[in-house]
Amino acid sequence: MKLRRTMLYVPGNSAAMVKDAHIYRPDTVMFDLEDSVSYREKDAARFLVYQTLRTLDYEGVETAVRINGLDTPYGRDDIEAMVRARPNIIRIPKTEKAQDVTDVETEIERVERKIGLPIGTIKLFAAIETPLGVLNAREIACSSNRLLGIALGAEDLVTSLRTSRSKDGIELHYARSQVLYAARIAGINAIDTVYSNVQDEEGFIAEVRLIKQLGFDGKSVIQPNQIKLVHRVYTPTEEEIHKALRVLAAIREAESKGSGVIALDGRMVDKPIVERARWTIELAKASGVVPEEVKL
């Protein structure tokens, strides 16, 4: 079970940040070729991310690249270069319908074939950043086997909605719910939007608590200092860990007895509880709270 509590945005044309963003240990490093790169620098950023990904070791941290859309003059070259650079994930910006995903997938497959990479090596993430995208979240989420998750991008969305970001995030309530439901139907990750006021630690933590409670798997972050804060919110409590460990022990016991029914304290443990227990332990391990050796 791969955790994606934090996806760290790294401007694709910043040599200093591209070279070792993994030291902050986000769950995913995401190099950006899109909004953080000016039109005049698209080529330079593409070469920089390409060379860096091919050369440097990110020490097991998952890598992603946000490409430019296929409706721009840069999208195809981005795919040509990035499939060759082999990040784990390509993230599609401003996805509005299932076709947007399959178009990118077709391009990726073409390059994979050309360079002899097994088809399906490069995984996908789709960002939903428009009202149409939000309404089509379900078809987008179910559009491709490569798709690992969908991510809400709220900066443009609130403008389209004729509102702005607020502290409690009431304006995003519908979009967040929609994205989350779509991801759950498809069985993929749901990632929340960035919080751009990097000075406001309290506001940031409040928002992370909110999206965790809603059910999101994680959040896009723009500042390395935000990573620890997210991971802290996602660290399970001792009580949660204790309970999860007991559930897992009950599973093992049932397995050793060859029993199909898992019981704990005289009550049946069903599938969602088992999954939640695994997820809790995975989070706990990533937070360094439970020894790695604990078996699932």
Binding site: A44, Q51, T52, L56, R84, K114
Partner: peptide, 29 residues
């Protein structure tokens, strides 16, 4: 700059100096 950064910047500068916007990705590999 690290070696990979130097390579990236030089490649970008060369293509700009050559006025080429259609990149021969096969050859760049």
């Amino acid at each position: 700059a690290l070696d990979c950064t130097i390579r990236a910047r030089l490649t970008a500068a060369v293509f700009r100096a050559a006025g080429i916007e259609k990149y021969p990705w096969e050859e760049l590999e």
